[in-house]
Nucleic acid binder design. Sequence first.
DNA 1: TTGTAAGCGTTATCAC
DNA 2: GTGATAACGCTTACAA
Lengths: 382, 382
Amino acid sequence: MPAQRTAEGVPTIYHVATAAGVSIATVSRVLNGHAKIRPATEERVLAAVRELGYVPNAAAQGLSKGLKRILGLVFANPWWHDDPLSIEETNLLFADTVIRGAQWNADRHGYSLLLLSSGVTRIGHGALFGDVIGKVDGLVLLDRVVRQERVAPIAKRVPVVLLAGSGRSRSAVTVRVDNAGAMWLLAEHLVLHHGMRRTAFVGGLPDSPDNLARLEAFERAVRELGGTCEPAERWSADWTSPGAARVVRRRLEDKRRQPEAIVCANDQMAIGAMHALATAGLRVPDDVAVAGFDDIPVSAYLSPPLTTIRQPMRELGAAAVESLVKRLEGVALDSREVVLPTKLIVRESCGCQAGASEVGEATLPSRMLADGARSALSETVA
Amino acid sequence: MPAQRTAEGVPTIYHVATAAGVSIATVSRVLNGHAKIRPATEERVLAAVRELGYVPNAAAQGLSKGLKRILGLVFANPWWHDDPLSIEETNLLFADTVIRGAQWNADRHGYSLLLLSSGVTRIGHGALFGDVIGKVDGLVLLDRVVRQERVAPIAKRVPVVLLAGSGRSRSAVTVRVDNAGAMWLLAEHLVLHHGMRRTAFVGGLPDSPDNLARLEAFERAVRELGGTCEPAERWSADWTSPGAARVVRRRLEDKRRQPEAIVCANDQMAIGAMHALATAGLRVPDDVAVAGFDDIPVSAYLSPPLTTIRQPMRELGAAAVESLVKRLEGVALDSREVVLPTKLIVRESCGCQAGASEVGEATLPSRMLADGARSALSETVA
DNA sequence: TTGTAAGCGTTATCAC
DNA sequence: GTGATAACGCTTACAA
């Protein structure tokens, strides 16, 4: 037996073996539960493990087993010092909540989640995200972190799941929400229920697939229902409250008749829009109705409470991990695309009255669920 | 040369060597930039690397170098299905923003950030966080993820930084903000500037070091300035908006005179408090002033905009990683404790008038900076 | 039931 | 400059 090789203070399997008077193979067996071990032996090994505070070196395990049990999630994580205006980052809550869902489910499956960012240093510069790809068994790519054509080469090396992507990738699985169904519901509520005809849609970053899907679906739905939606160019923002506030203020200076309803591609922008309206002396929803998308926690606590689309952000992260894990364990995926359902949460910013409950909340099932959509939630959290 | 050993499709250094007609040692040298390589050779190797889409296996590198270049961050990440009320998680924004800062700085130093959660599965059950500790070179432990006495054994194995901890650990470095200085500033503003004497402090989870520090400092400051602070037990909440709303509503039912100012241990609770007050027909700040802590992005967009303490959450994460990396690179730390400064952000919920700027914002330097505090920000983002 | 030894894919120390 | 080759710490046949 090569005895203890490490000079460092960190105990290895050799130390444990020596201390327990067995071979390293036996230690490994005890720790991994394979094979039958004599109880007395097992006890000695475990005692040694405890005594030394031994924890296996995951790098060695990964090398030996060919599985690192680490999943990567790539998101946009800029530092903001260059741009004081972006203190409130692009869709902050969305990414963070997705991350939480992904971490949670990875953990459940015995994997850990490695957080990777696009945009700051080496990542994204070299091909294949630099070397970080070598650290993971699979990758979740958030919306917009990588261009369409860059996905294939990455997917050649590790399984990839696209989160909130356009869903048009051959090489990777896509997980997203039912944006179109959501916007239809909202348009119906505004146009049919409240009788509003003139609307506007405050968009997030223009190249975001989610933003595009929401915009197109909303415009189309409103038009088909007999209403109008102001030209998107004039209402394009950047997912942030200040950005949306700016857009709304600019429109307010224009003295033509204002829209009756302003729908925003996320809740943060709805908050910015409401702020701009309030500052201009307009009341929500009496003068203008406002709606958002996401249903972030504060939305229920705004005045007025925000009518919005709830998307299962956490489940989105969990579902992405779920299909990655399935792929790694050799389970066949039944679809290249997972579409999670959304809900219309009716509160007061659209003109409805507060319900009996503390936080008024009406829930309609999403119709128009895309083909192949199932509740990945029940799948995931089973 | 043992030729290509891997059956999988993933190319190894052996494939590259074969393709380039050199030894694996040469490939390694080219990729790591050590030693002099003939330009022609280098070119052949690089070509092979590109051709094959080779990326080094990080597990093998970690094993060989004794450094995984992975840092772990442990935070609380419960799934909420058991408890529908906790949809808005404990101090969500705080942890998420800290995580972003940590990820950003880790990336800058060539490390990746592994997200680990306490509480859900194996982690925290076995000693030493189960096996996950074997995946990292160092660990950042967030507030409350582990009890005081559990830190030492972990720190024996990998360097540990405590984030937002009590600062009383021998075995680990602590990174936190200047809670006491912040609360003094706020108390002065409320009591001296606005002349309010009767106050209340809505607390977060009672066992959180941050919460405790804020509560104690605020009570003490108010008292020394001649005001009063209602008993903490009655105002104890859980970091969430609904939690704070509940506490405030309960107090409102009590017909004794209400406090003139309600200070909350974070912004989410301030939002919940304002909601409860508005629902009860009380106006902020005319009837009751409200203040928060954190300065999350939406706080500037509430009505009224929230007066709060800005703590550098992102820098907190970055600083934690900074000291971990220093430790790993053998740089001596000049202190067991890093204390970052805070700022009082005066908006309108305290009774001040809106400033000239879009979002009124007065900034005072934090006095009472704890001993040894330096701007770790400048250190970090240098 | 346990031990021996051959990988796993790198890096790094020798030689040449 | 470049090529063998020995670690690195673990898992897993294969023997015993």
